[in-house]
Design a protein around this nucleic acid. Sequence first.
RNA 1: CGGGAAGUAGCGCAGGCCGGUAGCGCAUCUGGUUUGGGACCAGGGGGUCGCAGGUUCGAAUCCUGUCUUCCCGACCA
Length: 492
Amino acid sequence: MSTLTTRQQDYSQWYNDLILKGGLADYSSVRGCMVIKPYGFALWENMRDQLDRMFKETGHQNAYFPLFVPKSLFEAEEKNAEGFAKECAVVTHYRLKADPSKKGKLIVDPAAKLEEELVVRPTSEAIIWNTYKGWIQSYRDLPILINQWANVVRWEMRTRLFLRTAEFLWQEGHTAHATKEEALAETVKMLDVYAHFVEEFMALPVVKGVKTANERFAGAEDTYCIEALMQDGKALQAGTSHFLGQNFAKAFDVKFAAKDNSMEYVWATSWGVSTRLIGALVMAHSDDQGLVLPPRIAPLQVVIVPIYNKDAIAREKIDKKAAELVQALKEKGIRVQFDNDDSTRPGWKFAEHELRGVPIRIALGARDLENNQVEIARRDTKEKSQHSLDGLLDHVSFLLTDIQQNLFNRASQFRAEMTNEANNWDEFVKLLDEKGGFISAHWDGSPETEEKIKELTKATIRCIPIDNKPEAGKCILTGMPSSQRVLFARAY
RNA sequence: CGGGAAGUAGCGCAGGCCGGUAGCGCAUCUGGUUUGGGACCAGGGGGUCGCAGGUUCGAAUCCUGUCUUCCCGACCA
């Protein structure tokens, strides 16, 4: 059978192998675009559904805005437009016609040129604020708390499955508020929702922080983020929440009448997470045998593998007991599959389900039935043990919780080991090259210094942690005074 | 977008330099034996050699273009 590249051999190839052989996604014939396969999409659906519940619990509603943004609207907020201009797909024509010189071929009909080009949304602030203008007259119309699940297109030069593709799926929240304080509170609230989701459901610890000016979303006053650490010591931005100030309100002239009858610009936020989270999940927990998925979002939580033998009566008994187990587990809300496919043998199934990251495997054979037990294997530690059929349901529930917790603990411990302080340039470079991970260091606060450090080391400031403590120090590069440490890392 | 590599059966690859019947392993199908960590025997099916031009009596092979993917870089909130 095909074997996986190990992390040590080639981390990038290992990642690709897991995505492809684990059945999450496939390459497509469209440059930079991938196909999300059913197993990968099931994973996304679980993530999406949970996030959607959390958005609704915090008062948001879903809506849908157009894929196309007229160029004139897109360019209205200048910084935002500039920031995305280089990666926009643009629709210029609306019709094809038969190629007069080549039979059976089509060409773009020059007569069908659009009067105004349409930008395929790289993000939706423009079309949404253009719409909000018509919805907002009074403070009574605020706040507007809307989210949309959508696809966006960013024409990337270099793509990687799930981490960076030309088209990807995400959600984008767009809220409008009467006051700055309320908009700021919303920005932080949604950052907390993201952090909670990623930690509790994806079992991945994150650092909450604020981006520096260099890394800020184009058009935002402030960009908040959650940053996660991958097994190769590189950081990955897992979600962002932006305080947009009144930038979009001014660009699209969205004002409201306040209680005192004064006209004021609306305050805005936007926030998003994408299918990139799947990439984070894969790189954070998986091992050389395949995917390792946290039980709370795994498409399949338990797989039951029958161990048959020649004895047809024993086979019937196994099937019967397995059916009972499936029924009982389903009633407890556990996602379970009985893998009685007769064309593969147990060993093959074991390897396959490990590759796909199913948290718990239960093996059930004649020998087990005689002893009123099953063999249980957990994916995170690969431990195998026998367990009595009595009390099995509770044990499975316990294990799912325990695996979830263990994955989080493991990732937390790894991150703790990989987060270090550097107090001068030599220490910084040494840590970066020999260990990787997050490096907490002083920075003089200037964009120029940040840029210089990036040029020299490829490390960027991932964020200024929200819970940062003030601490006097000197910038590792310039020696200029600094009031706090920031988190550096090489990143995806 | 620059540098490197690759595209031949579903998957992994050989063949290519030196043009002449398209091959191997796995998978698949049929029959049988099996089943506690990727089973075995026997028989069978499956390919416009990424695509488009060109050279040639003849192209997987040589030439040109083009598309797609991977790795490195630039770029990328």
